[in-house]
Design a protein around this nucleic acid. Sequence first.
DNA 1: TATACCGGTATATAAAAGTATACCGGGTTG
DNA 2: CAACCCGGTATACTTTTATATACCGGTATA
Lengths: 123, 123
Amino acid sequence: MTPVRKTGLKAEDAGECKKSLLPVRDALYVLSGKWKLPIIVALAHGHKRFKELQREIKGITARMLSKELRELEMNELVSRTVYDTTPVTVEYELTKYGETLDTVIVALRDWGLRHRKKIKARK
Amino acid sequence: MTPVRKTGLKAEDAGECKKSLLPVRDALYVLSGKWKLPIIVALAHGHKRFKELQREIKGITARMLSKELRELEMNELVSRTVYDTTPVTVEYELTKYGETLDTVIVALRDWGLRHRKKIKARK
DNA sequence: TATACCGGTATATAAAAGTATACCGGGTTG
DNA sequence: CAACCCGGTATACTTTTATATACCGGTATA
């Protein structure tokens, strides 16, 4: 007896499935927190400065923006470049690697859209 | 000038992208919390009773299991069936709809695996 | 009769995540 | 000289999320 599907959830045995829990967690962790997505989306259209981001992302405090940017930077999803202008300019940009999140964000969006419709429909 | 890619992050204009933030959030919300994934994975191989789940998912308390199952049930990802046996049996099962999470979990897993490798490689 | 299993709930607490607010040095503009 | 912009940090606080622990009624088993 071999699995019918290669990638499906039920196709894999319990051991395999449990092993995949960690990578899934890793991916979710990278996107976790209230502000990561808004930041990624804001940077998807090109580099932005700190204050630009803060103005564009409604409601975020400097503290959270700074913290989340640092985490994204540590995961190499975002790059930080300091320009020695006056006053100093700091530019944040989605890295090439950061752009690979594309796939997973699209998957989340598509399922999310479907879910929204379902939830609305049942009222 | 039209976008080169149809589904990519950068392919869409700012408005479109911001709109997609909500569905992405919805999808992430459904998977949010420490125990949702472990529960989904445990149920991916067929129905389980409450205590079975609790035994299988190491470290979860009855309170959290109960709470997370209720949330999954509200989102129609999991069904709850009470059998009038003695003692009473309560079975939880992934719904057909719950199985559609498949795609997004696979996307997360694949990116997560890639990310794991990257992080390990740079040490 | 005592003990254990089932499927939970209630209460209290701890830990994590997010917010509010003030402040910093360096530079520029009025 | 005062006020403002930049790119943040520090401290204290609130809210959310998760844990620990005790307990419940009903039934079966020793």
